[in-house]
């Protein structure tokens, strides 16, 4: 299926400030696609911010990881692919189950997963590839 309109791309250094660039990009998507449900867009935004936040926090070497993010708007779904240059993700950091209520960490990737219909992480020659899909309601 072809995208209904142009794709979006962003390349940035994985530091906390990059999150605002992603928020701005999602805001632009919402402006360009007023037909997109606000819940679909905000849940997708949450997933992207959690994944990028994870790269910022845990990417190695710290402060030197670069990522490329592409977003595609299709008639039936939103697809995001983030590729970062960091070392392979520590297996203990991969999403498990939601931590207990008073925990102050460990929710990010679990939250991203529940916001998405498809979530895939793999380490390839290109780097860490995070694929996120949300079906439009």
């Amino acid at each position: 299926m072809r995208p209904t309109a142009g794709d979006y791309a962003l390349e940035a250094l994985a530091v906390p400030e990059c999150l605002n660039l992603l928020h701005d990009l999602l805001e632009q998507v919402g402006t360009d696609h007023p037909e997109l449900g606000s819940e679909d867009l905000s849940m997708f935004e949450t997933a992207i911010i959690e994944i990028a936040g994870n790269v910022v926090e845990h990417g190695r070497p710290p402060g030197r990881v670069v990522f490329r993010f592409r977003l595609h708007v299709f008639d039936d779904r939103l697809v995001g692919v983030l590729v970062d240059s960091g070392e392979a993700l520590d297996p203990t950091l991969r999403p498990g189950s939601m931590p207990e209520e008073m925990a102050e960490s460990g929710r990010g990737l679990v939250l991203a997963r529940v916001m998405l219909d498809e979530f895939d992480y793999r380490h390839t020659d290109a780097g860490n590839t995070w694929t996120m899909v949300r079906h439009r309601s």
């Binding site: 911010i49 959690e50 929710r107």
Partner: peptide
């Protein structure tokens, strides 16, 4: 907008 870092700040504040 809130993310897991914001939630953690609220939980830390609650504790």
């Amino acid at each position: 907008f809130i993310d897991s870092s914001g939630l953690a700040a609220l939980i830390g504040g609650l504790k």
